[in-house]
Design a protein around this nucleic acid. Structure first.
Lengths: 128, 128, 128, 128
DNA sequence: TTTT
DNA sequence: TTTT
C-alpha cells in the first residue's frame, strides 16, 4: 500500500519530455503545498514536492497547466536512483501521479477551453 | 492537504536522536514498500521511503521496532533543505509520520511485551 | 488506520446544531463527489457522502460554506447506530472531517471576507 | 477525488455473489476498524465499515479471507440507493475496494497456500 | 531553484 | 546504503 494525496500550486510550468527508446510522454512539475500551521515568524510555510506523470496524463498536464495553477494530485511515492555529475549515486523521492484534478483556471482563459476538469488515467469498466 | 499512507518493512533498526537545543526525540527509518507489479524479469520491486517521527511516537518506534518489522504509516510528505559536505544545498523528500501501526511481531518476543499495537500521536478528546 | 479524502460540492447549506448536554457545536453536510467515469448514457455520476464535523471546525464550516461550494475534506469513516421512527435500529456510515479546505468562493462575496482558506483542527506544535 | 484507506478485521466470512444478468463476481464483507482512542469506560471501540469488491478481486477475497483476518483496503466511498422491504428508499454508504492487502494468516493454514499477498485490480503497464 |  |  502506497498512497499520496496533495493539493497545491505548480511552482513553474510543467516540463514535458519523451523517453528516448519508446517515446513515451513524461511530465514533471513541483507542487507548493501549504503547511497547516505558521512558523515562529507567523508565516505559512510550504513543502515543495516533485511530481511525475506519464502518457496521456502527462500530455494533459503539459497542455493545460501552468505556473501557479491549483491542483489535487493522487498517486504513490517513488524513490529513484540517479547518477550525479560527479558520478556518485543520488536518490530522489517523488510522487507518481495517477489522477490530477484541476481546481482553478487562469482568469484570461475561459474555462470552456480546458478539455477536462479531471484526467482519467485509464478507462474504467463498470460492472453493470 | 498533504497525506501519505504506506505499508512496508523497516530496512534497518530505527535511529533515535535528540534535537541539540530542546532535546526533543526524533526517530528516522526507511520503509521498503512493495510495488503492485513485477518488472521485466518478473521480480517484485520496492520503493525505499525515508520516514521521520517526533516525540512520544519517536520513542515508541525506537523502543519497539527493528529491521524487518511490518508497519503502516500515515502522515504527510515534507521537503527539507540541508547542506552537503561540499557546502552545496541538497533537498530531501520524506514522510513525517503521525501514526504508526505495528502489523507483525518478532517470533522470539511475545506480543504481550509490546506496549501498544497502535501509537497515539496526541490524546484525542471526544465530543461527548 | 482509517482515512478518507474527498473533493466535492455541498448539496445544501450546512446544518449547525449543539449537543444537548454539553452544547458542543456539530455541523452536518453532504458532499457530491463526481465519479471518474461516465455511465452508459455518457453522464457523469456522483456519490452523495454525508460529512460530520465538530467544534471550531463545525462553526467555521457553518459560517463560511453554502450550497454549491467546492471543498476538500480529510478525516475518517465512522459508523453510527440510531433509532428510526418505528423503533428499529438503523446504521449510518459517514465521514468525520478533521480538515476542510475551501477551494472556491462565491462570486458575490469577496474572498477577503472569508476568515481562512484552511481550517485548523487543533494547533500543531513544531518541534523546533 | 474520492479515497478511502482502512486497516481492520473481517467480522464474518465474505459473501460471494454474481450479478444476475452478466454473472460478474461481487464480494461483500464488513471491516472492524479500531478507533485510535478509548471511550469513557476505557474500552477501545471500532467502526464497522461495509466493503464491496468486484471481479477477480472479489474471487480472490472470497477464496482467501475468512472471519477475523486482518487486511488493508484502499478504494473509494460510494453511496447506493436501494428499496427496503416496506418499499421505502434506503441509502447505504460503503467502500468500493480497489486493493486488498492481506496482513496476517490463519495459524492452521501455511502461508504458502495463499496465492498472493497483494491483489492486483488490473495489470499495470510500466512506461519502460 | 519555488506557488497564491 | 535497503525489507520479507
Amino acid at each position: 500500500m502506497n498512497k499520496a494525496i496533495l493539493i497545491g500550486r505548480l511552482t513553474k510550468d510543467p516540463e514535458l519530455k519523451f523517453t528516448p527508446s519508446s517515446g513515451i510522454a513524461v511530465a514533471n512539475f513541483t507542487l507548493a503545498v501549504d503547511r497547516n500551521y505558521t512558523n515562529q515568524e507567523g508565516k505559512r510555510e510550504a513543502d515543495f514536492i516533485p511530481v511525475i506523470c506519464w502518457r496521456k496524463l502527462a500530455e494533459n498536464v503539459a497542455n493545460n497547466l501552468t505556473k501557479g495553477r491549483l491542483v489535487a494530485v493522487s498517486g504513490s511515492i517513488q524513490t529513484r536512483k540517479y547518477q550525479a555529475q560527479d558520478g556518485s549515486n543520488r536518490y530522489v523521492t517523488e510522487v507518481v501521479a495517477e489522477e490530477v484534478k484541476f481546481l482553478d483556471w487562469p482568469k484570461d482563459k475561459p474555462q470552456e477551453n480546458i478539455p477536462d476538469n479531471f484526467v482519467e488515467v485509464e478507462g474504467e469498466e463498470l460492472p453493470f
